[in-house]
Every structure is written in structure tokens, then in C-alpha cells.
Design a protein around this nucleic acid. Structure first.
Lengths: 208, 208
DNA sequence: CCTGATCCTGACCAAATGGTCAATAATTTG
DNA sequence: CAAATTATTGACCATTTGGTCAGGATCAGG
């Protein structure tokens, strides 16, 4: 519970990092319950007791991973600004989120796994930090709509749609690839698709 | 492996059904590895050996559930027809898929869990039956585009987007509810949102 | 109401798993 | 370089878990 104030040794930092990287790979591939400490230890090139020397328990590793994840996850949304063209801002957010799915698919799956199972360790963040951030950005989008700079949409569901559409390519990657076959670049195609989708959806109609 | 040709007794049908229902609830809530036969047995009101009297193994229960799932899952897409207005057809599909997320969230999560972990038992279906179905419907959508009846989009990714946007409300339900708070009806709002989204996206632009 | 088939269970087992610990090795530091 | 601290591990343990089995209960049909 209490954070050790003693600063970490070099070897400590390295091994904790190694364990977290290995654990991310394992947890994201087989879920929390489906992953054993032995698997993590082997993936990290350490013995099981050694892993437990650095982390109190399997649960502690998982919790640590999730904590680190949220910052990475919320970053792009935080960067959505009032300045600039609204549609460009929203599109930039979608694009960055898609890049994150492409570059951090394990993180995406870890998150999906957690939420899918009812987010037992994330609920406070979802209903707290995330909710407030969404509220703030929704207000911004609502403002843009009120100013007539983008077409009217429900801001919350607009954000949900960005999450759903981008994370889908990481979380359901096997399905996407199985359906598309080998001669496709899902992420490149998705970028074009999302661009079209949001441009059309947000374009202000001259007269409906 | 071989199907018992002897027809099932009444009690057999009832208990197998009870077990499958209980197992769906448990598996969808905690994943395959996170669920024990004992939990399934208790949820079904049976003893563990009794559960194993009706199913050879925990794996057999899971496999049976997944098999039954695919028909339910692919049904709405199969119903997308060449007749009628293209945009209406696509919208009807999206709406039905959203209803399925609302009415069968456990099934959605079971499926998500499976795909998330690499779809070890579903890959043949994904690359086979599903892929063919998607190919067929993509061709239909491409035809509609060629005829100028809907705006041009990548048909595959259009289908992906429908899956992602609708399943999101079931799979990430805790997140959606945590962000929206208690005074919202996610599915009702989503229906409106999806309607707007696809109408705007698919509307043929007079002159771009 | 007898008999064979179906249904059900307590007791049990082997393997896996999360976690501990005493002892040893390596490293840091005075 | 010696003492103290930190890192590592083999052996071990208690619990959980998937699955078995022999025997008893129940039920359908003649």
C-alpha cells in the first residue's frame, strides 16, 4: 500500500520494467486469469520467486500496468483543443487514436479485457477522471455545434464512436485480418475510411 | 467428437440448456480461464459431476456456446438484401445489430472475449464462413456504390464500422455507463446517433 | 412391481498455481 | 576488502481446479 520512498536501484528499475513488459504481453494475450506468474517469469527471463520479489503479487503487476495505461490512453483526448478547425481537431484525435491501436495493440487489449470484465479495478477512473475529461471535451464539441462550425451530433456518442472504431482494429485484429485476407493493410485503409466518415458526418449541411 | 444419434430425453434437453445458460453468464462475465466448472454448476443449480455428466469438459461447454453463437451473430448480415433502398438496408442492419447488443450483451461479450484472445476456436469460421459472407455483402455494397445509389466507401470497413459501433455498447457497457452517468439510455441515444452517422456518410453528394 | 437405463453425487485424484522462505549469490558502500 | 544490503533461487506449501469413478437414486417401460 505505502509507496517505498527509497529510490530504486538500477537493477531494480530494469527488472521491474522487464517484468511489466512481459506481463503486458501475456495479460493482453490471455487475460488476467488466463496468465500464470510462471508464464510472466519465463517471458521475462526470471524465476517465479524473483518476479514476486519485485511485485507483491500477480494482482500488483496487473494493477501497475493498468495505472500506467490510463495516461497513455487519455493523452490524445486531452490534446483536443479549442483552437483550430473543429473538424480537423476531431479528425486529428481519431487519427492519433488509430495510431495508438496500431502501435500499442497490447495496451488496447489489456484495457478491453479489463472493461469487458466489468472494469473491477478501473471503475473509479472511468467514473472519475475519464468522465470529467469527456464532460469537458463534450462541452467543447457542443460549443462548436452551437457556433455552426460542425454539424449537430451527440458529443458523447461522437467520442464513443471514435473509441469504438479505432480500438476495434486492435482488439478484433484477428477478425479483421481473417476477413480481409493477407493482401490488405487494415490500418492504412482504416485511416482513409475514418477520414471520410468523420468529414461527411461533421460537414455542415448548407440547407437540409 | 461424434454426435450421439440417440435423441435426447426431456430432462437431458432441460439440463443441457440450463448449463449453457449458466455458462454463458459466467464465461461472458469472467472469461473462459476465469470461470470454474464449480461456478457454472452453482449458477445452474447442479453439482459439478452432474455438469460433467452432460458435457465432456469445460472446453466442450465453451465450444458449444460459441457454435450456437455464430448463427445468431451472422443472421442480421445475411438478411441484408439487394432489394429496397441501399441506405435503408445498411441502416436496418446497423439497427438490428445494435438491438442485438442491447438484447444479447452476454453473447456479445463472449464473442469479444474469444476474438480478443486470438479466436483460438473461431479462426476457421472467421476466415471461412464469415469471410465469404462479408465478401458477398461487400460486393453488393460495391454495386450500390457503382450505381451511384450511396456515396463511395470501402465496403469492408463500412461493415467493420457497424460491428465496432454496435458491439461497443455491449462490450464496453460499464465504460459507457460510467461516462454517461445514470440519467441516460445509451441504446436509445446510440440508435439516433448511428442513424445520423450512416445517413450522412452514405448520402450521395450532388457535386463534391 | 421388476428391470434396465438414465441420472446424480460424495469422495477422490493429479496437476497447476499463487505465494513463502531460508539459504545463497551478487552488489554496493563505508 | 569487509560488512551490509540487495538480488536470486530451489524447495516447499496450501489451495484450487479440471476431471474421474463407483455406487446409489430415479425413472420409464413392460
Amino acid at each position: 500500500m505505502q509507496e517505498q520512498p527509497r529510490r530504486q536501484s538500477r537493477i531494480q528499475r530494469k527488472n521491474r520494467e522487464t517484468i511489466l513488459t512481459a506481463a503486458l504481453r501475456e495479460f493482453s494475450a490471455r487475460g488476467f486469469a488466463g496468465t500464470t506468474i510462471d508464464q510472466i517469469a519465463e517471458a521475462a527471463g526470471l524465476s517465479k520467486p524473483n518476479v514476486l520479489y519485485y511485485f507483491q503479487s500477480k494482482d500488483a503487476i496487473h494493477t501497475e500496468l493498468l495505472r500506467g495505461l490510463m495516461d497513455l490512453w487519455l493523452g490524445p483526448l486531452r490534446d483536443m483543443r479549442a483552437e483550430g478547425d473543429p473538424a480537423d481537431q476531431i479528425l486529428a484525435y481519431a487519427r492519433r487514436k488509430l495510431e495508438m491501436s496500431r502501435d500499442y495493440p497490447q495496451e488496447s487489449r489489456l484495457f478491453a479485457n479489463e472493461v469487458l470484465q466489468g472494469a473491477p479495478r478501473l471503475q473509479p477512473i472511468l467514473g472519475g477522471e475519464l468522465r470529467e475529461l469527456v464532460e469537458e471535451k463534450s462541452a467543447l464539441i457542443a460549443l462548436w455545434i452551437a457556433e455552426g462550425r460542425i454539424a449537430p451530433v451527440d458529443p458523447h456518442h461522437l467520442l464513443f464512436s471514435i473509441w469504438a472504431l479505432t480500438q476495434h482494429y486492435a482488439d478484433f485484429e484477428v477478425q479483421v485480418r481473417a476477413v480481409l485476407g493477407p493482401d490488405h493493410d487494415p490500418y492504412a485503409e482504416a485511416e482513409v475510411f475514418l477520414d471520410q466518415l468523420y468529414r461527411r458526418m461533421l460537414r455542415v449541411q448548407p440547407r437540409e
